[in-house]
Design a binder for these strands. Structure first.
Lengths: 252, 252
DNA sequence: ACAGCCCGAACTGCATGCAATTCGGGCGAT
DNA sequence: ATCGCCCGAATTGCATGCAGTTCGGGCTGT
């Protein structure tokens, strides 16, 4: 009822493909796979005991979700969103999740409330564990909320954009100090139960916004890591003076 | 500048696959392919001059977008969203497009304004043409707006959800009386140029909302077309009295 | 040393082939 | 007649094979 099995109708063709997708998604949001990590089809196929065809199909799905970047004739890599894209993703996420809580306010059933509080408790318990797990749990809290709207489309979009945000956090955030404040999750649950629509929408907004602004620390001139962009301002003067050599270390 | 080529980084692996995707998307939103239409892999491959592998991959992508439904070991079909899903899609769309115009208000460049008005003029000119074309143009107007935000993610989501809405219109709408009022498009452009954020957000909201409510005419007891649901209320009394026969015509 | 070229290895793009499953029509039983 | 079963055709699920492209390291010339 409350938490559905999710394999229902959200694409995810057969089984093997979706298994790989799930595994990779999880690896990505737990930062076991960093942005830019290579994902050769054979390796994936070998690791998961399937042929390249299937691995390839899975990569296609993940690319459609924006988690993976596919370049023709080149090895697929974990997506490396630009800072601007990260900010855009958070903006979208804010709107979508406001919609979620708007639909949910005052409509939660007892078992749903129990499930949510149980999840937050789990988040609490995981505080001593690795960052990876707590990040995943924090994200899953939001996805759990989306599930409760019973709107598959909303679930899909919230999930996707939440994953993307996770991805960007691993790029642009500091050691993410317990990033998704657990107390804010509790506050959201409380406001949802109380049925105060405006309050809960405000809470969700500030919750996400604070995560975004705390994490996405300004266009940070250096962290941009895209060689071309970094060099752009110097390009004009390149003729006048010799630029520092970048023989090999600069690649990749 | 204004209207980008879009083949940039939004997944869409190589070429052949994305060609098929685009063709099918278009066929779907122009209602050449109705919801429920079968999409066998071989036929597609044959039609587009590729192997089943590629056709299959394309179907996977479209399924990820929610335009196609994939069932294990069964022929893929054009998605048939439930009425509730249609309503949900419109709700999401409203939020997303409000975000679009919020970002755009007062920020449009001259050439962008020209492009928009040119598009609306094209919509006007197409009024005598087939419904299919005018529906497509109306949808493309919204996607064009999204493009101008320069946010690939927003473009992707707005496009997807707009296509989905198109799909549902072909299911639940009446002959859609020039459904996406062209004048409302003009009004939106005007408000965007004027830079009145609240006004334009309101306009977009009511524009989409009116399309939604005018088209999605209530849960309409009959139009539901899912035999099982229709019969559900009668199931209890089935033992007492013979139900009208439904030998073969009832199927599909 | 250093840059540039070159060639083998690695990898992707795609088609094809085979096994498993579903579909659909005809045939026999009721 | 109608229902149910059964079997061939259609179709999917997946692996493999081959051709074309990219990658990366060593070699050569300067």
């Amino acid at each position: 009822m409350a938490g559905r099995a999710d394999t229902s109708k959200t694409a995810e063709s057969s089984d093997k493909v979706s298994v790989i997708c799930r595994a990779l998604r999880r690896a990505i949001i737990e930062q076991a796979l960093e942005p830019g990590a290579k994902l050769p089809e054979d390796s994936l196929g070998e690791r998961f005991g399937v042929s390249r065809t299937i691995a390839r199909h899975a990569l296609g799905q993940l690319a459609a979700e924006g988690l993976v970047e596919l370049r023709r004739n080149r090895i697929a890599v974990v997506a490396t969103p630009s800072w601007q894209e990260a900010r855009d993703a958070f903006d979208i996420r804010i709107e979508l999740e406001r919609l979620v809580v708007r639909q949910l306010a005052g409509k939660l059933t007892k078992p749903q409330i129990a499930e949510l509080t149980a999840h937050v408790d789990a988040e609490d318990r995981a505080r001593d564990g690795t960052d990876a797990v707590s990040i995943r749990l924090a994200t899953e809290f939001h996805i759990l909320l989306a599930h409760m709207t019973n709107s598959p489309i909303l679930v899909r979009y919230v999930s996707e954009v939440a994953y993307r945000c996770c991805l960007t956090l691993s790029l642009y955030s500091r050691p993410h100090s317990s990033e998704c404040a657990i107390n804010e999750h509790r506050a959201i649950i409380a406001a949802l139960v109380k049925g105060d629509v405006d309050k809960v929408m405000g809470l969700m907004h500030s919750h996400l916004d604070s995560v975004a602004t705390r994490a996405l620390v300004a266009p940070s001139p250096q962290r941009g890591r895209d060689l071309l962009d970094i060099l752009a301002p110097y390009a004009d003067e390149a003729s006048g003076d010799r630029v520092v050599k970048l023989p090999k270390a600069a690649r990749r």
